[in-house]
Design a protein around this nucleic acid. Sequence first.
DNA 1: CGAATTTGACCCGCGC
DNA 2: GCGCGGGTCAAATTCG
Length: 293
Amino acid sequence: MEDKDRAASDPAEFAGDTSWTLATDDSDGAYLFPGDRERSILREFGWNLEPDQPNRIGTDDGSWRPVQSSLTGSIEPAAAMSSRSNNQSVSSSSSEDPPEKSTVSDEKPPEIPSKGKKKEHKRIRQPRFAFMTKTEVDHLEDGYRWRKYGQKAVKNSPFPRSYYRCTNSKCTVKKRVERSSEDPTIVITTYEGQHCHHTVGFPRGGIISHEAAFASQLAPTMSQFYYPIQLPRDNNNNNNSFSSISQPCQAYDDAEGGLSAMMPLPADVSSQSQPSTDEGLLGDIVPPGMRIR
DNA sequence: CGAATTTGACCCGCGC
DNA sequence: GCGCGGGTCAAATTCG
């Protein structure tokens, strides 16, 4: 069902104190986090939001308002993906090296998986969050290299969903990209996990720090428009928030720069109805509740 | 020739 | 228990 669309039709509610539901799919139960919750969530991803900054997306009148960036760009080591649960298909050809340290709970030796066997335990989802962008291109450049490992048709949507995995051998970050069935110009990108390495640089603009890159794609979204969608809530956790997040590999070592290198975004939400001129890079961030055309 | 993508099959969780 | 749908695997194919 079109939860996402449904949810996307009421920005006012989002501005309020209620949790903003914007499920990308039935099981995700994705929702936006307009209140304090978002900070903690974002923090899980390494984005620090100063508590007293006026970075609220909603205004009193319920209208959308760009949020001043208050992200610090520092990545807290805490964040990270939960233990790759036992087996969430890690192996595979790709690349994943065992995290140097499995903090937290289990460190399951991902032993071999061959497709057919394994997966003895339930897979634990890593913290995720999604955001929508209005762009012509499906796959936005974010400074990281991704390898597509799957594509699936999505129910109730004419557009397929693509699955990407970070090509870095030590990085377990994944991302899912799909187009809104209601507005094909909107791309919904869902990230899962946190990068543990530097970016390879933007195609235009040279090398930049991993955070800068990531920030370019994510921070602007959150810091200025705040349209991230929190997805998680894994079944094994009663917490209605993220579960314990452990660090998969090395924690980030440089903490600044991220923001300074952030790409400028249109200050006015209304501008989002205009076609992105920078396709290939970040598209225009679209507030879930916004009706584009 | 190695890397990346495509794509059908398989696995798993969830709702009924 | 069964079927559905999302997510992943991995062989085949395509690309650089």
